[in-house]
Computed example of a mutant assay.
Amino acid sequence: MFENPYSFSSENYATLYIQSGGADSQRLIKLRKKLSTGQWFLNEILCLSDIRIPYSTDPWA
């Protein structure tokens, strides 16, 4: 996971980035902090779409 200078620009929200071997660019996830417990929860995930299957199992490769 990676963060950048803008990852924590909104209060109680965080935007982090994940590098995947099946994608050309980093994918982001957004977390939201529950104030009553201080826990972080997944709020939005954009890293599951457009992930390539392994080359060894791709019939079109």
Results as ranks from 00 to 15, higher is better:
49 S>G: 04
17 Y>A: 02
20 S>Y: 14
14 A>T: 02
37 T>V: 10
47 C>F: 15
30 K>E: 11
3 E>H: 10
33 K>Y: 04
18 I>V: 08
20 S>A: 05
29 I>W: 00
29 I>E: 01
47 C>T: 15
3 E>R: 14
35 L>S: 11
26 Q>K: 11
43 N>L: 08
36 S>Q: 05
55 Y>T: 05
61 A>Q: 13
31 L>R: 02
8 F>K: 12
49 S>E: 15
16 L>A: 13
28 L>I: 01
61 A>Y: 14
1 M>G: 07
30 K>W: 03
17 Y>S: 06
14 A>M: 06
21 G>N: 06
38 G>Q: 02
55 Y>P: 02
58 D>L: 08
39 Q>T: 09
45 I>Y: 09
54 P>W: 14
22 G>K: 01
33 K>N: 10
46 L>F: 07
58 D>R: 12
18 I>M: 06
22 G>S: 15
43 N>R: 08
6 Y>D: 13
10 S>N: 12
60 W>A: 05
27 R>E: 06
61 A>G: 14
13 Y>K: 02
7 S>H: 04
2 F>E: 12
51 I>H: 00
47 C>Y: 15
48 L>I: 05
43 N>I: 01
40 W>G: 00
28 L>M: 09
58 D>T: 04
27 R>D: 10
53 I>H: 09
57 T>D: 05
18 I>N: 09
11 E>P: 01
53 I>V: 13
13 Y>V: 00
34 K>Y: 13
33 K>T: 01
54 P>S: 14
15 T>R: 14
15 T>M: 02
36 S>A: 12
5 P>M: 02
58 D>K: 15
23 A>V: 07
34 K>Q: 09
51 I>C: 04
52 R>A: 13
37 T>L: 04
20 S>M: 10
44 E>F: 03
8 F>E: 11
42 L>V: 10
38 G>R: 04
42 L>C: 09
24 D>G: 14
10 S>C: 04
28 L>W: 10
18 I>S: 03
44 E>V: 05
17 Y>G: 01
34 K>I: 09
34 K>D: 09
24 D>L: 07
52 R>T: 06
50 D>K: 06
54 P>F: 08
34 K>L: 09
27 R>Q: 07
41 F>A: 03
61 A>F: 08
6 Y>I: 03
39 Q>W: 03
26 Q>C: 06
32 R>P: 00
59 P>H: 15
49 S>M: 07
11 E>I: 02
36 S>G: 06
35 L>W: 11
17 Y>C: 01
29 I>K: 09
29 I>M: 14
